[in-house]
Simulated assay, not measured.
Amino acid sequence: MRFLGPAALTAASLVLLLATDGSVADLGSALDAAPDPARAAAVATLGGRPAGDPGAVPGAVPGSIPPVELAAAEVAHAAPPAAVPPQAVPPQPVKLARRVLADPGWTERREQLPRQLFAGAGFDACSAPALDTLKAWRGTSPYGAVGIYISGAQRACDQSRLTADWVRQAQAMGWKLIPTHVGLQAPCSRLARKPHHIDPARATQQGRDEAATAVRALKSLGLRTGSPVYLDIEAYPRGDRACSQAVVDFAQGWTQALHKAGYYAGFYSSTDAGIADLAAAARAGSSPLPDAVWYARWDDRPTTTDGAGALGGDLWALHQRIHQHHGNVQESYGGAALTIDRDQLDAVVAR
């Protein structure tokens, strides 16, 4: 999962100014002239910390996972560092229509559906790691969960290791799994490596179709009902209402079909693209929406409590968040090296 939004591109230019010119005064002028999101991103890149603490308000998006008591046997917990106030200025939301799809029986089914929650550090890698690597990392690394790309026509890397036996052995070691699906992308996406896009006229049905593919993969890997699968929507330029609405419609079809099959729906995107649009849809009253969100904001802050400045305490706040906070880093434990993205979890994982 890789993202670089418009604000981040501007921020990179500002940081380059400092690296090449060395002038703090020039950098300050450039920051003052930059748009708010770019200025905040540049400050984050340079290690700046704004003052103030916004706090949080309990609550959850309609259709969310209900509050639970986290038993020690159910949740492996690694306490994250103390929260730091968010550095990013939330993007201005696109006004989206309220759209409600039938989701019959989900509220009752959800109450009976087994689920596995995990709170702590995790990582995702482009290919499922070798089992020997997972064995070397287990107990020597800070991580307890690993993202796996189980399905989707636009996965970037080979998944030849990813079999039902791999899943069985990884879980037997104690690893928690984060299933992910990479299919159609936003209509306005500009990613050359993912050329297949959502059709706004058929977005809801396409979301259902992608969910059906993901369910087949979950079953083939031996992942049981009550598992989630996270829909990977890479960053896209915002401001196009039709594009944003298509992404939300797609996510609603995805959620509806997964609920019908007995699985939780997850959604991955960057905070200034898909996550911002999903939040706008939630506040408009659209449903059903994904049960958990995995948001990318590479701010080096391993916490889920503030939503990286993009999610308030009223949205996906009840053990429903994963934060991808650092990308493309190589780490080595027990003599085994991997290139990974770092994540902090407080969310449902596979069973």
Rank of each mutant, 00 (worst) to 15 (best):
Q206D: 07
A211N: 05
Y236I: 04
L231S: 05
L14E: 10
F118V: 06
Q159I: 11
G59Q: 07
L31A: 09
E74Y: 00
G266K: 08
A281L: 04
A33H: 04
Q344C: 02
A276C: 05
Q206M: 10
W166V: 14
G285A: 04
E210S: 15
R190F: 00
G262N: 03
A242G: 02
S269R: 00
Y230P: 00
Q116D: 12
L258D: 03
A251F: 04
G122K: 03
G55A: 08
H319R: 15
P80I: 04
I233R: 06
T140D: 13
A337Y: 05
A60V: 06
L18P: 00
A217C: 06
C126E: 05
C126V: 03
I65Y: 05
C157R: 09
G226H: 00
D53V: 11
T20M: 01
A71E: 07
R351P: 15
H196M: 08
R297W: 03
R342E: 02
P228R: 08
P66V: 01
A19S: 02
S189V: 02
L184E: 07
Q116N: 04
A130M: 03
D53F: 14
G285D: 08
G122V: 01
D272F: 00
V182W: 05
A217I: 03
R168W: 01
G313N: 03
L221C: 04
A292S: 14
Y263V: 02
W175G: 11
R224T: 13
A186W: 03
A273H: 02
A186D: 14
R208S: 11
L218P: 10
T180K: 06
A7Y: 12
S127W: 12
R110W: 01
V247F: 12
A308F: 07
H259N: 07
G262S: 01
S287C: 03
A280T: 02
